[in-house]
Amino acid sequence: MPFLELTPSTNWQRVGASRYLAEIISNTPQEIEYKPIPPIYFTVESNFLLIGVQSDSAKPYWYLGANVSQYLYIAPDLGDANFPGGVQSSDQKKLGLNRLTLVNFQDYNISPYILLFEVPYWLRDLYIEVWQHIGGSSDSVQDALIDVKQRLERIEYKIDSINP
Rank of each mutant, 00 (worst) to 15 (best):
W131P: 02
W131S: 07
P120S: 11
W122A: 02
P120I: 05
Y113G: 09
S111I: 04
F117D: 05
S111P: 11
R124A: 00
P120Q: 02
V130K: 04
F105I: 02
L126Y: 02
L126H: 01
Q132M: 02
P120A: 06
L126C: 00
L123K: 04
F105M: 10
H133W: 01
N109W: 11
W131Y: 15
W131T: 01
I110Q: 13
L102W: 02
V103C: 11
D107C: 12
L115I: 01
N104F: 11
Y127G: 08
V103S: 13
V103M: 14
Y108G: 01
V130C: 02
Q106D: 13
I110H: 09
I110R: 10
W131E: 08
S111C: 13
F105P: 09
E118D: 11
I128T: 02
L115R: 09
L115A: 12
Q106N: 13
I128R: 01
Y108V: 00
I134A: 12
W131Q: 09
Q106A: 13
V103R: 08
W122R: 06
Y121V: 03
N104W: 12
V130P: 05
R124I: 00
L102P: 10
Q132S: 08
W131D: 12
I134G: 11
L126T: 04
S111Q: 15
N104K: 14
D125F: 10
Q132F: 04
Y121F: 07
N104Q: 13
F117R: 00
D107I: 03
N109C: 11
W122T: 06
R124G: 00
Y108H: 14
E118M: 04
Y127W: 10
L116E: 12
P112F: 00
I114P: 06
L102A: 12
E129L: 07
V130I: 03
F117M: 05
V130N: 05
Q132L: 01
Y108D: 05
Y108T: 03
V119A: 01
N109E: 14
I110A: 08
I134K: 14
E129A: 12
E129I: 06
W122V: 07
N109Y: 12
N104R: 15
D107V: 00
L102R: 13
F117V: 00
L102I: 03
R124P: 08
L115V: 06
D107L: 09
P120R: 05
H133E: 07
S111R: 15
L102Y: 11
P112D: 06
V119T: 05
V103T: 10
W131N: 10
P112K: 00
I134H: 09
